[in-house]
Amino acid sequence: MNDLTYNIIFYLFAAITVLSAFFVVTNRNIVYSAFFLLFTFFGVAGIYVLLGADFVAIVQLIVYVGGILILLLFGVMLTNKITNVEIKSGTINIYPAVIGVGLLSGALLAALITSSWKTFPTEAPLPTTAALGTMLLQEYALIFELLGIILLIALIGAASIARREA
């Protein structure tokens, strides 16, 4: 893959990501913004692939698109009455938010562009799945187990919170 192709693909994905994210946060219809969120996640996954993180990209697709997004859609449906055709949400704090976020992102962008990062020459990316698997079950085995426990707790906790009678 030569540089030009790489660049084109990068700009493509970056554009998908940023634009759909923009729609996510500005669209007033929640269902639409959920769909744009889908494109954002796809774009991010593409960026991961460009960065040589094949496994993480796949996990991103499976968990975010397959799991979290569905969860969010369910949330939308469960919290709005079906008869209510206008599934819309209002906004508050627009002006202070725009100013604040603008300033913040400006500051961040300025900071990261002016700072000189120490980078290393990159090589062609290798498959990461096997290496990640080894690390997860050796050095990070404890964290791995802990994550399992956290997921279990989250499962039980979510069920018990959601079921609680109001």
């Binding site: 946060v25 976020v101 990261l112």
Partner: peptide, 21 residues
């Protein structure tokens, strides 16, 4: 790219009324 995503996330958190957004 990541900074832009971050900023938009913040924006969503601050401005949207709907909890899911």
């Amino acid at each position: 790219v990541s900074t832009l995503l971050f900023s938009m996330g913040i924006y969503a958190i601050v401005t949207r009324k709907n909890a899911i957004q």
